[in-house]
Nucleic acid binder design. Structure first.
Lengths: 111, 111
DNA sequence: AAAATAATTCGTTAATTCGGGAAGTGGCGA
DNA sequence: TCGCCACTTCCCGAATTAACGAATTATTTT
């Protein structure tokens, strides 16, 4: 992951509606949701929502798949991993023993 | 972690200079760096840098400690953990077996 | 007490972001 | 093929964000 990609991902998540969308898709799992359903659940008008989806898509955080008339979006969790790896790379100059915090970090399902 | 806090953290990192600052501090480990040193290394003028440090500080991503005349900043890695936990909470409706991706995620030092 | 150094706050300007209505695409059923 | 439905693109005003010089606050040195 490059810095520009990381910034794009963070910027995508640094907005109330988009964070709700992403977290909703994370909860939905692999199947995801179609745009209309997201629109109804989060009460975001289609044009606005479409813009948000494009931003999340460009950031790589979600993927789109057309099914008949609808477009299904789902969260790509791997990008979150890359993001964290990038941000914490070479922590404590690689002397991880000086930095035990990081070892206990990042256990899934904590939040 | 609340949504507003998460947004504040992401917004703080969604900016080129601030991401460089944060990653620099992550590499420096517990001791951190003083503002003047960050200013020299990243070539950011003091007033601009000060604003960036305040944003990172308010987001909880870094902590400041005065030592004589200088102020030392260091990264607080725990917040990154909370952030990821919050974003991925209830992944796949809690059925983690449907969502094995997350289990292989987030191994430190990957990036 | 005055000068020097470290960092922050203030004020201005330029650029970016956000939300949503109107209009445009593309796929599907009658 | 005509219309409908799901979604996207275009456009706009309003609000937010970014950078930096000048002035300010806080701490140390002489």
């Amino acid at each position: 992951m490059e810095q520009d990609a990381a910034i794009e991902a963070f910027a995508a998540l640094a907005q109330s509606s988009r964070m709700k969308i992403y977290r909703l898709l994370v909860r939905q799992g692999h199947d995801g949701l179609q745009v209309g359903e997201i629109s109804r659940r989060l009460e975001i008008v289609p044009s606005t929502l479409s813009g948000h989806m494009a931003i999340l898509r460009r950031a790589g955080l979600v993927t789109a798949k057309r099914q008949q008339r609808e477009i299904h979006y789902s969260a790509d969790l791997a990008v979150m991993n890359e993001l964290v790896g990038f941000m914490l790379a070479d922590c404590c100059n690689g002397q991880v023993e000086n930095c035990s915090e990081i070892l206990t970090l990042l256990e899934p399902g904590t939040g």
